[in-house]
Amino acid sequence: MDDIGERYILYYLPGTNLEIPMGGVNPYTVVNTLVVMAVLWGLMYAATRRLSAVPNRGQAALEWVVGAFDNLVASSLEMDREKNRRFFPLITGMFLFLILANFLGFLPGPWFEEPTADLSTTLGLGILGVGIAVVCGIAAKGIWGYLEELLGPLWQQPGIAGKISALFFFPLNVVGEISKVLSISFRLFGNIVGSAVLLVVISHLVFYLVLPIGLLFFFVFFVGAIQAFVFAMLTLTYISVAIK
């Protein structure tokens, strides 16, 4: 039982006494992340190789995805469209990477683990997203404007009561920023690990007959796609709340 806790929270560097918190380095994750990146690059390359005014099937699909996300980012940030395009590659790239990473569980074979079933991946992406939101917030409002936001909604009111309320709001908001990272990363991680474990156990219970196929499609494609979308949307929401 210790090793399960350590598998997910702490990881010992092999051959040493050093503890790496939150997962450590798992070679499967690194290799599978590279596989997902290669597949994504290959798909993009294949779809954009022969661009034409009358798109072929791959180009049409890609145009649909890109157009949908362009609209999504634009309507969520509501600035002028050209300025929004700064965030468009981040959100779309995150979504496409996560959806392919979650779909990797569909491939048979023990070598294919979803990279998102490792806390290191999700925590890294969570820190990246929330960090970008904080940096963009500071860039948009200035360092004092950002701090004022942390001091709570009553800070700007006249009188001493508003200033005292900052004692309550400041720690709350700081913890809130940290819990954003925790919640966004553990949500993805928990859902993907949970689906994988569930699938193995139920397949074992029904002797690998019929049922696992439907469940595989439900968990891998449906839950995986939804969670990838939720992750990208939450990052977009954090950014849009921070910069306005």
Partner: peptide
């Protein structure tokens, strides 16, 4: 998610 986190932390407390 906090509950999940505490459950995993508990697993390391043997």
């Amino acid at each position: 998610i906090f509950g999940l986190l505490v459950a995993f932390v508990l697993f390391t407390r043997h």
